[in-house]
Design a protein around this nucleic acid. Structure first.
Length: 273
DNA sequence: ACGAGCACCTGTGTGC
DNA sequence: TGCACACAGGTGCTCG
């Protein structure tokens, strides 16, 4: 499940291989994953050059020539592959062919992922992009900005961390890790969190996401890099997926509960409510 | 405004 | 072995 660090990993890999290349053709194998319809998608993308590759929250954003944008969201099982990976041919949804003979393959087992081809003007209106919150790793996201984002907000901390319209890019895995690092119970209410704890939470967001990027993401079930390379951050997770195992800090047993409809892991001692 | 529940999908693991 | 079912969790939607 690609979250901000996983998408950032893909962005960095793609910049190495795909930037400045020209898309000579494309093949849409599953119509429902592309926007607009498959025919105009194919017609409009032919001959366009990739100018820049970047990320917005969990969206991958490719700026193309002629004022066009290619936007990709991997959702849960989406992958971008520079080479076809073993056993994945069943799930190929879109293939981009470049003028130098190389190609980029979008595969997605569960068909939740989406690929948009649109003008710069429409790009701002894509549902999801339009209401995206602040970039947590941006230089402009200081502690004061963090407090502003949470001002007058109510609810469980984990629910708020997962809200893309507040802070962009945090998903289930990093939300649990952020809560553990800041010694906050995921079910605690944000309105009850006061200054020293709130500051811990802010620093944990930046630290956990940066560490994820430094380790090229988490490969627990589906995420791999564009060359099929595994991330390494799963070896550093403190709580996610560790139910019944000992907390690395206090040796208590990690518990699993359900919060915001998601499997949620926490240490009942370190993260006492 | 918040939270719960469903929908979108498909593979995996469990229990009977 | 076969079958039913819960679960995985990002996002958008409805409903109370």
């Amino acid at each position: 499940m690609p979250e901000l660090p996983e998408v950032e990993t893909i962005v960095r890999e793609l910049r190495e291989v795909a930037e400045k290349k020209t898309i000579s053709d494309s093949q849409v194998l599953t119509d429902s994953v592309v926007w607009p319809d498959a025919v105009s998608f194919k017609n409009k993308i032919r001959g366009l050059q990739i100018k820049t590759i970047s990320r917005k929250g969990k969206f991958l954003v490719l700026e193309l020539s002629k004022g066009m944008m290619l936007v990709i969201h991997l959702r849960m099982t989406g992958r971008l592959m520079w080479r076809l990976q073993k056993g994945r041919d069943k799930y190929i949804r879109v293939i981009f062919a470049f003028s130098d003979g190389s190609r980029l393959i979008f595969s997605d087992m569960r068909k939740f992922g989406k690929v948009w081809l649109c003008s710069k003007k429409y790009y701002e209106k894509i549902t999801g992009i339009a209401r995206l919150g602040v970039e947590p790793l941006s230089d402009f996201f200081g502690y004061e900005e963090f407090k502003n984002v949470l001002a007058n907000k109510k609810g469980r901390i984990k629910n708020l961390l997962l809200r893309q319209d507040l802070i962009a890019g945090i998903g289930n895995i990093y939300a649990d890790e952020i809560c553990h690092m800041s010694h906050v119970c995921p079910t605690s209410r944000i309105e009850c969190l006061k200054d020293p704890k709130l500051r811990d939470l802010y620093h944990a967001i930046r630290y956990c996401l940066n560490e994820g990027i430094n380790h090229c993401g988490v490969s627990v079930s589906d995420f791999v890099g564009t060359r099929g390379n595994q991330g390494k951050h799963q070896h550093y997770l403190k709580v996610y997926g560790r139910e019944g195992k000992r907390c690395r800090s206090c040796k208590s047993l990690i518990k699993k509960i359900r919060v915001a409809g998601r499997g949620t892991y926490y240490c009942p001692f370190c993260q006492e409510p």
